[in-house]
Every structure is written in C-alpha cells, then in structure tokens.
Amino acid sequence: MNAEDMGTDLQEIFLTEEQIRARIQEMAAEIDRDYAGKDLLLVGVLRGAIMVMADLSRALKNPLHMDWMAVSSYGSGTKSSGVVRILKDLDTDISGRHVLIVEDIIDSGLTLSWLKENLSSRGPASVEIATFLRKPEAVRVDIDVKYVGFDIANEFVVGYGLDYAEKYRNLPFVGTLAPHVYA
C-alpha cells in the first residue's frame, strides 16, 4: 500500500520511507556498538512493532535472538482500565540475557514502564528500550529510553506498523489521516 492507494484518507506524510530506512540503519549501528559481544535478545511488542522489529533485526550485524510479547492496558473501548494484561508472554528464559524491548511508539509510557519492570524482575543482565516513535508531550511517566527513532508531536499517526482500526499498518511511511476517516 502506498500514498496513492489511500485516496483521500491520507492527510499528511510525516516520515518518508527513506527517512525511516536511514534512521533504522543509524539505530542498528548504535545497538551493534553497545551490544558487541553480548547475548542480545530483542523483544518485540505486538502488534505495532512488527515493522520496526523486522527492519531493525535485519540491519543489525551482531548475532541476536528474538521473541515477542503482547500486552494490553485497555478494558473495553478506548479507555485504559489501568490494569496491564499479558496476552502473549515470552517463550524465552531471559535470565542473564541482555534484553532490548522494541516498541513502535511511546505515548503515555505507562504500559511500557510496567513491561520493563516486569521483565526486569525475571533476572536479565539488562533491560533497555528501543522505540521507533516517541511523543514527548504525551509521556506521563519517567521512563528511560535508550534508542529513539524519532520524537514526534502528540498527534495520532498511522503506517509502518501503526494502525487505526487495524488498517494502515502496511504503509511504508508514517502519516496522519484525514478527519473524515474518523467520522
């Protein structure tokens, strides 16, 4: 899917495919440097992190392992219940491993803060975070993020794994939707 396929649904492209590719390569170089000689486990957070996890893992030169988690902090609808649930846990024992959580976007940071604390309690050598996007204006908890692709404004964005009603994840860019899409 590309911009032309969206018709009038696309309002604006924030990050092009080229910008994304270049930044993922830069992040991979930083991660390779920091984790050289270490037993690295990438933990992708489903579903949004699929694209960044795939591209980042292919860009990394050092050996690594991958696993996935799915967590939810929503009850019914769009209001957070305040309770985080693990929908899919790791298949890998992380004791003594260097864990890098790979996230698509950080909004409030509440769920990610809980996830980092949960994984830290399992005896890893370290737990760090890499996120493709971060909304500094929306962050509600102090959470240390080691690798940030892009800081963006507090707007709802889609593409490159990010969705609206399970659509638009497969866009190769990040953009905003026209108001009529939400109506």
Score class of each variant (00 low, 15 high):
124 P>T: 14
153 A>I: 02
131 T>S: 12
122 R>F: 03
161 G>Q: 01
177 L>D: 07
64 L>K: 14
45 V>I: 15
112 L>C: 09
119 L>F: 04
142 D>S: 11
161 G>I: 07
175 G>Q: 05
164 Y>P: 00
19 Q>A: 12
104 D>N: 06
141 V>K: 03
54 A>C: 05
22 A>S: 11
162 L>T: 00
123 G>Y: 08
53 M>C: 08
144 D>C: 07
26 E>H: 10
1 M>D: 13
135 K>I: 04
126 S>W: 03
148 V>F: 04
67 D>T: 09
140 R>L: 13
154 N>H: 04
136 P>L: 07
67 D>A: 00
117 E>D: 15
85 R>K: 13
104 D>G: 08
31 I>S: 04
15 L>T: 10
49 A>S: 15
157 V>D: 00
103 E>C: 11
103 E>S: 02
130 A>E: 06
19 Q>F: 13
174 V>D: 05
47 R>D: 03
125 A>S: 15
11 Q>E: 14
109 G>M: 09
70 A>N: 00
21 R>F: 07
14 F>A: 01
175 G>L: 03
183 A>N: 13
110 L>T: 12
29 A>M: 05
174 V>S: 01
115 L>H: 10
117 E>R: 07
67 D>H: 04
29 A>S: 12
182 Y>S: 03
15 L>R: 05
45 V>F: 03
28 A>F: 02
89 D>E: 12
48 G>M: 09
102 V>F: 10
150 F>I: 07
167 K>P: 03
44 G>M: 02
116 K>I: 14
39 D>M: 13
177 L>Q: 04
151 D>P: 03
23 R>A: 10
112 L>M: 15
89 D>H: 01
113 S>C: 11
35 Y>T: 02
152 I>Y: 10
18 E>A: 14
30 E>L: 15
33 R>L: 12
171 L>Y: 01
140 R>K: 15
149 G>H: 02
97 R>A: 15
18 E>Q: 14
132 F>H: 08
128 E>T: 07
160 Y>S: 00
87 L>M: 12
172 P>A: 04
91 D>E: 15
175 G>V: 07
126 S>Q: 08
37 G>N: 02
155 E>Y: 01
180 H>K: 08
40 L>G: 01
110 L>K: 10
38 K>F: 01
106 I>W: 06
27 M>G: 09
7 G>T: 09
112 L>A: 09
16 T>S: 15
1 M>I: 09
55 D>E: 06
144 D>P: 09
74 Y>V: 05
43 V>M: 11
19 Q>M: 13
135 K>T: 14
59 A>I: 06
49 A>N: 06
105 I>M: 03
130 A>R: 06
36 A>V: 11
155 E>W: 07
103 E>L: 08
147 Y>Q: 05
181 V>N: 00
56 L>G: 00
41 L>F: 08
80 S>A: 07
155 E>V: 13
104 D>H: 08
130 A>P: 00
17 E>G: 07
100 L>M: 11
157 V>P: 01
60 L>A: 09
18 E>S: 13
7 G>S: 11
124 P>W: 03
173 F>I: 11
150 F>Y: 10
153 A>H: 09
71 V>K: 03
132 F>S: 11
72 S>P: 02
67 D>Y: 02
71 V>R: 11
39 D>L: 10
169 R>L: 06
151 D>G: 08
163 D>H: 06
14 F>C: 15
